[in-house]
Design a protein around this nucleic acid. Structure first.
Ligand code: SF4
Ligand code: SF4
Lengths: 165, 165
DNA sequence: AGCATTTCAGACTCTTTTATCTTAAAATAA
DNA sequence: TTATTTTAAGATAAAAGAGTCTGAAATGCT
C-alpha cells in the first residue's frame, strides 16, 4: 500500500467534509459512522490534521472539526504530508538508504519519473476537485457506502452521446 | 513503501546472483554477507523463491541456490509476485475493497494509468538488464556496499562528450 | 560409516502499525 | 453552577510485519 491506513482515513474524512461544504463543525462521531472508521482511531488521526492546520476543532456542544481553509485551497499532498510524510514521493524503489543521483540504482531513471508523476497527482488535486466529482457522480467514499454510481446521469449521458451520430 | 522488505531483499539477492552469471550454486551465507541481510531471514525469503521456481536449491557441501532460468528470462515482476503478490499493481489508491470501474473513486482514471506504468516497468525489466547495468557502471546493490559509481568510466565519458564540441 | 556443510521447516521474539478504551479538559446551554 | 457534549491525551491491546533461533534433512567428502 502506497499510503498507510491512517493516511487513507484522514484523506477520506477530509473528502467527506469537503462534500458537505458547510461552515458548521462536524462531529468526528458522524464522520466515523459515515465512513465506517473506528471513532477513537479517527479522532487521533484528525488530531494530527488539526495540529497541522489542515482542520480546526472546537470542543463542547455544537463542536467538532472543520476544514481550516476552503476546500479548493487544500491539496491532497498536504494531508498525506501531515500523516505519512512526503518522503513517500522521494523514496528509493529498492529502499536503499542514502540513495541519490551519484550512485543510482539500475531503475533510477524510470522510477524517478514515475514517482514524480504520482507526487504531482497528489499536489495538483484539491479537496474541492474531489468533492465536486463525488457530488456530481455520486461516487463512493466509504467501503460500506451503498451509493452506486449515479445511474440516471450515466444513462442520460450515454444516450445523448449516441443520439448525436 | 511500495514493496515489502522481504520483497526488496529477494529482488536484491536475485540481482546479485544475476551479476555473477555463473552456473554454480551460491550459498545463501555468501549472499547475505554481500548484501548485509540477516542470513536466516534471507533463507526464508529465498525458500519462497525456490518454491515459485524462480530459483533452484541444493543442500549439502557445494550446495546453495541458483537462478532457475537464464537471467534474461527472469522478470522483476515474477519475483515481486512470488513474495508480495501482484495485487500491488492493481490496488486501489484509497484501499477501498471491491473497487472497480463500475463505482470508481475520484482519482481512478489517473491512478489506473500510473499503476499500469509501474507494473509495466516491473514486467519489462529482466534480471539480465539490471545485471548489465550493475556490471557496466558498478552500481551498488547493497546498502553497505562501498562501491561507488565507476569513476573512471564516468570521467572518460564526460571528457569525450566535452571534446566533441 | 561418519562428518562437515548447507538448505528446509517451523516455532519463536521483537517491532511497528492499527485499533480500542479510559480519563481528562474544554466549551456550551440551561 | 451543573449537566452535557465533544475533542485531547495517553495507556493498553490486538494484529501484522520483520527478524531470530533451533533442529531436521539432504548431500558430498574423507
Ligand atoms: S538511485 Fe535507485 S535506489 Fe536510489 S532513489 Fe533512485 S531509483 Fe531509488
Ligand atoms: S476506482 Fe478508485 S479506488 Fe478503485 S481502484 Fe480505481 S482508483 Fe482505486
Amino acid at each position: 500500500m502506497l499510503l498507510s491506513k491512517s493516511c487513507l482515513y484522514g484523506v477520506r474524512a477530509a473528502m467527506y467534509m469537503a462534500t458537505l461544504e458547510q461552515s458548521e463543525y462536524v462531529t468526528i462521531q458522524q464522520i466515523s459512522e459515515k465512513l465506517n472508521i473506528s471513532f477513537h482511531f479517527l479522532t487521533k488521526i484528525l488530531q494530527t490534521l488539526t495540529e497541522n492546520n489542515i482542520m480546526v476543532s472546537y470542543r463542547g456542544p455544537k463542536g467538532g472539526v472543520a476544514l481550516a481553509k476552503p476546500s479548493k485551497d487544500i491539496r491532497l499532498i498536504e494531508i498525506v504530508d501531515a500523516i505519512d510524510g512526503t518522503h513517500i514521493f522521494s523514496e528509493c524503489i529498492f529502499g536503499l538508504p542514502g540513495c541519490g543521483n551519484m550512485t543510482p540504482c539500475p531503475l533510477h531513471g524510470e522510477w524517478e519519473r514515475e514517482r514524480e508523476k504520482i507526487r504531482r497527482m497528489f499536489s495538483d488535486t484539491t479537496l474541492a476537485m474531489l468533492a465536486d466529482k463525488i457530488n456530481v457522480f455520486n461516487l463512493r467514499i466509504s467501503d460500506t457506502d451503498s451509493a452506486p454510481i449515479n445511474a440516471k446521469l450515466l444513462k442520460s449521458l450515454t444516450i445523448t452521446h449516441r443520439k448525436r451520430k
